[in-house]
Every structure is written in C-alpha cells, then in structure tokens.
Design a protein around this nucleic acid. Sequence first.
DNA 1: AAATGTGAACTTTTTCACAGCA
DNA 2: TGCTGTGAAAAAGTTCACATTT
Lengths: 266, 266
Amino acid sequence: MATGRSHRPATRSRGIPEATVARLPLYLRALTALSERSVPTVSSEELAAAAGVNSAKLRKDFSYLGSYGTRGVGYDVEYLVYQISRELGLTQDWPVVIVGIGNLGAALANYGGFASRGFRVAALIDADPAMAGKPVAGIPVQHTDQLEEIIQGEGVSIGVIATPAGAAQQVCDRLVAAGVTSILNFAPTVLAVPDGVDVRKVDLSIELQILAFHEQRKAGEVAAGTVVPPVGSRPEPVAARQASAGGQESAADQGPDGDVPAVMPT
Amino acid sequence: MATGRSHRPATRSRGIPEATVARLPLYLRALTALSERSVPTVSSEELAAAAGVNSAKLRKDFSYLGSYGTRGVGYDVEYLVYQISRELGLTQDWPVVIVGIGNLGAALANYGGFASRGFRVAALIDADPAMAGKPVAGIPVQHTDQLEEIIQGEGVSIGVIATPAGAAQQVCDRLVAAGVTSILNFAPTVLAVPDGVDVRKVDLSIELQILAFHEQRKAGEVAAGTVVPPVGSRPEPVAARQASAGGQESAADQGPDGDVPAVMPT
DNA sequence: AAATGTGAACTTTTTCACAGCA
DNA sequence: TGCTGTGAAAAAGTTCACATTT
C-alpha cells in the first residue's frame, strides 16, 4: 500500500554507501518501466531481476533509504519511484552545460535521456567561433567566452566536458571557478579539482581495455598464443617483445592525439 | 647464475583483482604520456599522481602483475608500458564492430582513442538501409543483414552497441549468436547475455544522477527549493573523488528498457 | 504464506607501515 | 638513502539466512 506514512526515513539519509548510490539509478529505471506499464507493486525478487542485481543486495540497498516496502507484499512502485527520485535529487531541475560540441558533444546534446529526468541542457559551449549560433539539438551553441556568464546566470552546478583531452583541464578550471561543483568528464584525462568538486569519468578506451583483458583471458587458457615467455629478466631496456600471438604490433599506434608506442625496445 | 630468473611473473595473471584491472588502463595512459616525453623512469608517487590514485594503491596493483620496479629508483616507463599492455591484451589487435550509427555511434567511430590502442573498427553497422554505403569516419556503413557475416569473417569478439534502447537486446542476441563475447553497451538497457559473455555499460544518465545525488548533498547552506532533510545531518567533508563505472562481470544483468518517463510524486 | 528488513558472516578493496633491496 | 613490495589491519561491499510483519 502506498502512503505508508508510518515509515520513518529515520535519518537514514546520512551515509548511503557509494555502491548503493550507484545502483539507485538502475532501480529507478526499472521502476519507471514498471510504472509505465501501470504495475502497482513489485517484489524485491522481480525488481532485482529487472535491474540485474540479486534481491538480497537490492533489499539491503533499500534498507539504507528506509522501510518503504510491505512484508508479504513488496514495494509500491509509484511510491518507490518518488522516494528514489527524491534521494537522488531528481525532484529538482538541474541545469547542465555541455562544453565541447564536437561529435560527442553533439551526440550528448541530442541524447534524450538527459531532459527526461531532472536534467536540462542549459547551454552548449564550444571554443570554435564558427560554431557560435549554430543550433545543435535545437539549442544554439555559444562561445567559450560566455562560459562564466552562462554558468552564473543559469545557476549551473553540473558541467559536462566533451572537449579534446588537451583542453579538458583548462575548461574544468574555468567551470569550477565559475561555480560548477560536479563534472562529468568524457575527455581521456585525469582532471585535478579542488576539494568539494565531484568528478565522474566516462572513458571509452578504458572500457574497451577492460573488456580486452577479459577477452584475452577467455581465449588464453588453452591457446598458447598470447602467453609471453619468461622474460624473467627485468634488466633495463626491455627487449621482451617476442611471442605475442599473431604479429600484431602494427595497428597499435598512431591516433589523433595520444597513442601507444608499441613496446619500444632499447 | 640464475640469470635474473628470480623474478617470476609467476603467472600472477591468475587472479588480478577486478578493481586493479579497471585501473590498469589509467596507469597505461599516464605511462604513455611519460613515454612520449621520453621520461625514462618514474616513482610510484609520481605515477600515482598522474593517474589520480594514491601510491600505495598503485604499488599494490603492480604487485599483482609482478615485480617490475627497482627499489630506490622506481619503474622503467617503457618496460611498464609493455607489461601493462600485455596484461591487458593490447599487444594484439582487436577488431571491433559498432552497431547503431546514429549520433553516438558516429561519435564513437570518429573517436581517435579507438585505433590508438589495439582496437580497430572492423565495421560500422546500422539497420537503416539509407545509411548503407555512406561513409562515417572513413568507413562505409553496412546493413544489419551483414552482421553475422562480418563478425565471423573478421573474427570480431568485441561489439559496441549504440542503438536505441529498444533495439539493444535484439542486437545483443545477434552479436552473441555470431560469436561476440564482449559487449560495450551504450544503450540505457540491461542486457541479458549467456554465461561467458562480458557486458560493460556506459550510461550517461546514470552518471548524471549519481552526480546529482552528491550535488544535492552539498547544498548544505542555501539551496533553491530543495527538500533538505531538517535533521542536522551535517554535510560530510566531500572528498574530491574521481569515479568511473563499476565493473560488471560476465553473465546476466540488466533488464527492461525504459528511459524518459517522468517522475511524479504526490 | 509471502516477502521485507537486517544482524552476522564472508569477500573484496583500500590503507597502513615498514622490512628489504638497489 | 630512497623507494619498492607486501604482510597485516581497516574499511567497504556482498551474501546469507531468518526473525518479523502483513
């Protein structure tokens, strides 16, 4: 039953584990889908399956928010959607600026998921004067010169960096100086920020590399291919380069910016 | 004399913690930058700073790979680049297919970081017949009909899904059936995959929601109209942290699609 | 009968701190 | 002397299993 007013958040608010916070959006999405199908209640088992986690974890996660379920019944979908939304701070509108309107920035601006939940693209900013005024996703791009003005004027506290790696730190510094305290960084760079500023990073090549690691493991077990010999010698200038399945090596270098100097012997 | 055989990578490969694996790409990037500047050696302290982690963690991470450093000196940059690359499986070439060439797919195809490290865009696939043949990032888009043929022909084992949420699971199923065992999913959906298949997810709105959560917490003083808990829960001393995505292993997770519904409290 | 909420056990990850080697 | 490599301690996160409530 909804309304369970008797439930007390009991100051639970204090200290929700980070791992739990990271899963709340997942639960929220699953719940939203149920809500659209007008499903009234859901059990931890069902919801967990929909979110891709196990039910014990889900129940534990929810226990940090409060007691929003009903024993023997499950959770009221609408009520839970509201509670999680509130916990995540989605009951308020968050203006967001996207800096760097290249391929990625444009894709992000066009991404629907944005506006769908408490987030509003307040402005698109790019350093290229030629981009100024040009509309992307229905929003005119503004020049970097306006950055501070926009942030302060719109009260923006969340910024998305989609610039080339080389410009990321500089943009970050300006965003922070202007008042932004949360940054979502798509540039392949480690940003230095002062205390109190949160940074989350989304990095395509890192994800691919992690997949490659596991992929290699899958094939490796049996195939003698990839296994590199001893190489125990850790002497100075590496030299080990031998083996390695198929004479790869090529293909592994040169890129727009950074790149990998495939093993440099000597 | 036992020619420096004392150092045995000892097939440490056995159990490298997942958390460590997720950081190796970070170290690799920092090392690559040093390599380009021709820096010969680096201490754990310096490298840790460049990668945005603390030195104890870095040393512990490296200890899982083997003893590649020199006490009193540090690590040989080139040697480490090689070792980490090898560990991640980047000494071989990984053909990758990107399915769904919309805004995001095109942005990914154009992303340089791809080719720069062991990954090669083997094909761009889209369900829209009108896209067929059209070059994106210099590569002609192919129709979904060719999917199986391409994957088998090129020996692709890593697939990137950048389709709308509604098509993701279907595409995923075909990729898996054709032989792909690692998937990077950009669609806001929880994909169901058989055991042995790895799925990693990159989700913009989830990242934003996590940031919103922390942002809300920071409003310790004056927030617009937020429902800040009356309880004197003092905002904790936010420590600037840098987060990324969590890691998910093989097998199932994720579930329904969904995205866009609006939240409605009462 | 069904399903939540949670203490307790267990596992993973991080941090400490220092012995040991170059 | 300087810095790595690593046991050991601490912290964070996950899973178990069951008392409790509807």
